[in-house]
Design a protein around this nucleic acid. Structure first.
Length: 576
RNA sequence: GCGCCUGUAGCUCAGCUGGAUAGAGCAACGGACUUCUAAUCCGUAGGUUGCAGGUUCGAAUCCUGCCAGGCGCGCCA
C-alpha cells in the first residue's frame, strides 16, 4: 500500500483504526529498503544483509520530522564511511508524494522533512473515533490479570497501597485500551499468622472494652480503628462472647472485623476510582484443598523434600540461594505455599499474562515464585511482577514511618480527603514505579494549586469554555468533511496536530512497557502545546472558515485530553 | 557479606529499550490580562548525568569495579 492509497483508506473508511505516525514510519522504512537495493544494483554500495534499523522522530525539530540511522549501521558491510552510504541511499530514494526534503546530517543520519498533508488527517480521525482514539488491537483479546494492592485486610490502606492502586488501575486501563481482556483482582490475605495475630489483638480489645484488665499482644495491631471495630461489635453482639471458648470468640471477632475492613477497603478504593472484578480469598485456597493439591503436585514432580520435620521447596534448583519451607514442622502451610497455589489457580483460570504489583520489600519473592511456576510446568515468562519502590511520607520536614503495628500512618481515605483523588492519582502515576517516592504531605496540600494535574485539567476546561462560548454565539461545531483544515498552518497548530497524532503510539508503548507514567508526560506536553496555541491563536474570530477549522482542532484536543486523563483515572472538568 | 532498586539543574523527576546541542515542573529573575478562563503564556539563568575504566561511528542508557542511599536475605507475610 502506498501512502496515497493509505490516505484514501482513512478518508473513505473513516472509522478504521490506524496509527498515522506508525504508518508513515513503515512507509519510509520500506522506501529505504528499496533505495538500498537499488543502490546496490547500480553498484553504488555493497552489503549482504539489511540491518535492523529504525525510523524515529528526532528529538530536535531541526533534524526533520523523521530520521533513520540506517547508513550508520552499514560501514562494516559496505566498507565505506557512513555519510557516503547515506548519500548513495538518498540518491536512490524513490519519489514520494509526502517527502519534501531528504538530507544527510551529523555522523550519517538521514533526515526526512515531510509536507503537512498527512497531519490534516489527524483531526478527522480523532473526531470520528472519539473515546476510541488511542485504542488498538495489540492485545488481541488475550486474557490478562492485573493483581494489585492486595493489602492485608487487618487495617486501613496506606500510602504504599495508594501508589499500587493508582499504578495498577492505570496499567489495567492501558491494557484494556490496547485490546486485552483485563481482570482486576485483589488477593485477600485472610489466612495465616497475621490473621491469628489480628484475632488476638481484637480479643484483647474486646475484653478491655468489657472492663477486663488483659495485656495487649506485643506484636499486635495497635491501630485505633481496631477499638472502634470492637465497639461496633459489642453494640451488635454485646458481651455474649465474654465467657466462651477463646477460639470461638476470636473466630467471631475476626469474621466481623474482616467483613467490616474489606467493605471499608472496597469503598475507599472505589472513591479512588478503582473497581475490582475479583476479590480472591486466600482462605478459599485452603478450604478448597488447592493448597494441598499444589503441594502434592510439587512433591510428585520431585521438587520437595523433608528436613527438620518441615517440607521444603527446592528453590535452589531455580537459581535461588536457599530452599524455601512450604509446610512447617507443625503441619501448617506457609504463605509461600498458598501463594504458589494462588498463582497456579491464576494460570488454571486461563490468564495468558499474569501481572502482579508488589512493593519492593517483596522483591526477594519474585524469582522464587517464578521458580515455583517453572516447577509446576508453566512458562514463568507469563508471570510478570512490577515492583514499586516504597513511598516515604514527609510531614513537617520529617519522615513518618508507616507501620500497621504502631497504627501511625496516613490512610488512603485521608489522602483523598486532603489532597483530592485527581491530584493524588496523577502524582502517583507521574513517577516511574522504580523511583523512590517522597510524598511531602504539607507540600501536596499547600501546593495543590500548582500541581501539574491542574495544568492539564485547565487545558480541558479552557476548551470547554470555548465550546460553550461558541454555542452561546450560535456557532455550531461543523462536520469534519465541511471544513478546510489546511487553514491550520501556524507553528502552534501544526505542533498540536502532530502531538495528537502521537497519542496511539504513546498508549501502545506505555501499555507494552507497563509504564503509565508515560501518559502523564504526554498529557502535560499536549496541555502545554494547547496553552501555547491558545495564547497565539484566537478560536472564535472574524474569519468563519478559520474559526470552524480551529473549533475542530480544539475539539480533537479535548477528546484526547479526556482520553488520556481517563486512562490515569483523573477527571476532566468542564469548568475550573 | 550476597541480591534487587536508585543516584541526572537548588528541589521533585523525565529521557521512548544505543543516537545528533541531556529535557520538564517547582523555586529564582525579567516581561505579557480592554480580547474565547492569567490555575495561562513568552523570555533569562541553572549540568563533569555519583566516581573511574571499558565496549563503538556514538553511552545518562550496555559491561566491570568502586562510593552513597533505600529495600530484602525467617519453619513472617
Amino acid at each position: 500500500m502506498n501512502f496515497l492509497s493509505f490516505l484514501f483508506l482513512i478518508s473513505s473508511k473513516g472509522g478504521i483504526k490506524v496509527n498515522l505516525v506508525a504508518q508513515i514510519q513503515e512507509e519510509i522504512k520500506e522506501n529505504l529498503k528499496t533505495a538500498l537495493v537499488t543502490a546496490r544494483e547500480k553498484g553504488k554500495i555493497n552489503f549482504e544483509i539489511i540491518p535492523d534499523f529504525v525510523v524515529e522522530v528526532p528529538r530536535e525539530k531541526q533534524h526533520g520530522d523523521f530520521a533513520t540511522n540506517l547508513a550508520m549501521l552499514l560501514p562494516k558491510q559496505a566498507k565505506m564511511p557512513p555519510r557516503e552510504i547515506a548519500q548513495a541511499i538518498v540518491e536512490c530514494f524513490p519519489e514520494t508524494a509526502y517527502v519534501n526534503d531528504v538530507e544527510i546530517a551529523g555522523p550519517g543520519f538521514i533526515n526526512f522533512r515531510l509536507n503537512n498533508s498527512w497531519l490534516y488527517q489527524v483531526i478527522p480521525q480523532v473526531i470520528r473515533q472519539k473515546e476510541k482514539y488511542g485504542t488498538s488491537n495489540l492485545g488481541q483479546g488475550k486474557k490478562v490479570q492485573v493483581e494489585f494492592v492486595s493489602a492485608n485486610p487487618t487495617g486501613l490502606l496506606h500510602m504504599g497501597n495508594a501508589r499500587g492502586a493508582a499504578l495498577g488501575d492505570s496499567i489495567a486501563n492501558l491494557l484494556e485500551e490496547v485490546g486485552y481482556d483485563v481482570t482486576r483482582e485483589f488477593y485477600i490475605n485472610d489466612a495465616g499468622n497475621q490473621i491469628e495475630n489480628f484475632a488476638r489483638s481484637l480479643e484483647a480489645r474486646y475484653l478491655q472494652q468489657l472492663g477486663q484488665d488483659v495485656p495487649f499482644p506485643d506484636e499486635g495491631y495497635h491501630g485505633e480503628d481496631l477499638i472502634e471495630t470492637v465497639k461496633r461489635f459489642i453494640e451488635e453482639e454485646g458481651d455474649k462472647y465474654l465467657n466462651v471458648d477463646g477460639k470461638l470468640r476470636r473466630e467471631m471477632l475476626v469474621k466481623y472485623a474482616l467483613d467490616e475492613k474489606l467493605t471499608a477497603i472496597e469503598n475507599v478504593l472505589r472513591d479512588f476510582g478503582v473497581e475490582y472484578d475479583v476479590w480472591f480469598s486466600e482462605q478459599s485456597l485452603h478450604d478448597s484443598g488447592e493448597v494441598q493439591e499444589t503441594i502434592d503436585i510439587l512433591n510428585e514432580r520431585g521438587y520437595l523434600y523433608e528436613q527438620d520435620g518441615a517440607l521444603w521447596f527446592k528453590a535452589t534448583e531455580f537459581g535461588e540461594e536457599k530452599d524455601e519451607v512450604v509446610v512447617r514442622s507443625n503441619g501448617i502451610p506457609t504463605y509461600f505455599a498458598a501463594d504458589i497455589a494462588y498463582h497456579r489457580n491464576k494460570f488454571e483460570r486461563g490468564f495468558q499474562w499474569v501481572i502482579n504489583l508488589w512493593g519492593a520489600d517483596h522483591h526477594g519473592h519474585v524469582s522464587r515464585m517464578k521458580g515455583a511456576m517453572k516447577a509446576l510446568g508453566y512458562d514463568s515468562d507469563r508471570l510478570q511482577v512490577v515492583l514499586m519502590q516504597l513511598v516515604r511520607l514527609f510531614q513537617g520536614g520529617e519522615v513518618l514511618r508507616m507501620s500497621k503495628r504502631t497504627g501511625k500512618y496516613i490512610t488512603l481515605s485521608e489522602l483523598v480527603e486532603e489532597v483530592g483523588k485527581d491530584a493524588a492519582r496523577y502524582f502517583f502515576v507521574m513517577r516511574s514505579p522504580d523511583s523512590h517516592l517522597d510524598f511531602d504531605l504539607d507540600l501536596a496540600k499547600s501546593q495543590s494549586q500548582e500541581n501539574p494535574v491542574y495544568y492539564v485539567q485547565y487545558a480541558h476546561a479552557r476548551i470547554c469554555s470555548i465550546l460553550r462560548q461558541a454555542a452561546e454565539e450560535g456557532i455550531a461545531v461543523p462536520a469534519v468533511d465541511d471544513v478546510e483544515l489546511t487553514l491550520l498552518n501556524t507553528g502552534e497548530e501544526l505542533e498540536l496536530m502532530r502531538k495528537l497524532a502521537d497519542f496511539p503510539e504513546v498508549v501502545a508503548g506505555a501499555a507494552q512497557a507497563l509504564e503509565p507514567h508515560r501518559l502523564t508526560r504526554y498529557a502535560h506536553e499536549l496541555a502545554g502545546q494547547f496553552h501555547s496555541f491558545y495564547t497565539v491563536c484566537r478560536v472564535l474570530g472574524e474569519d468563519k472558515a478559520l474559526t470552524e477549522a480551529r473549533l475542530l482542532l480544539v475539539q480533537a484536543v479535548q477528546i484526547v485530553l479526556k482520553n488520556v486523563l481517563r486512562l490515569i483515572g483523573v477527571s476532566a472538568p468542564e469548568r475550573m
